[in-house]
Amino acid sequence: MVDVSEGTTVAGKALFVSSSREIAYQLYQYILELRPDWGEVMAADSLAVLSEKDQKEILPAAKIQMVMTRGKDDDKTLYQLLGNKVYRKELDRQFKNIKSNFKIAIVVDMWLTGFDVPFLDTIYIDKPIHRHNLIQTISRVNRKFGGKEKGLVVDDIGVKSK
């Protein structure tokens, strides 16, 4: 549990960085076993209090999504889950909206550099990342944002010791 009093969370947005597509998919499936409702496409919790413009921009979404390109060898379920380029672009837009129901992204290579979400609270790293890419990846979560002074980096692979 993240301690909100430390200022590490404001939006509940998290990014899981997996070391492979297979691990990412297994993680996704495991999380949905524990929390099946997180995979249901739902409107944002606060939709009733949003402006009309925000209501049009915030689409119903599952709380957790995998963000990666499709592979020619993906099984049918995974292939359909990942969607096309237009779908991934919409995921990008929804994740960058603080009010969106899309809170948890599982990635392998996408969104590690050049992806700015100032209210991203937590990043879980389970992938060997080095030098500039490591700095860029950690920077995804260390943006200051209204009430957030720092983010939380969970190093599952021992990046710090490498």
Rank of each mutant, 00 (worst) to 15 (best):
M1Y: 06
V4P: 03
E6I: 02
T9V: 15
T9R: 13
V10E: 09
A11Y: 01
A11G: 08
G12H: 06
S19A: 04
E22W: 08
Q26T: 12
Q26M: 11
Q26E: 14
Y28V: 05
Q29V: 03
I31C: 09
L32K: 06
G39Y: 05
V41N: 08
A43W: 01
A44E: 11
D54F: 04
D54R: 11
K56W: 04
E57A: 15
I58R: 01
I58V: 15
Q65C: 09
V67T: 00
V67Q: 06
D73T: 14
L78H: 00
L81I: 05
L81D: 02
L82F: 05
V86S: 12
K89N: 13
N97I: 11
F102A: 11
I106D: 02
L112A: 01
F115C: 05
F119G: 00
F119T: 04
D121S: 05
T122C: 11
I123M: 14
I123S: 02
I123D: 01
I125R: 03
V141C: 09
K144N: 13
G146M: 12
G146P: 00
G151P: 03
L152Y: 05
V153Q: 03
V153Y: 02
V154I: 15
G158E: 01
V159M: 04
K160V: 11
K162Q: 12
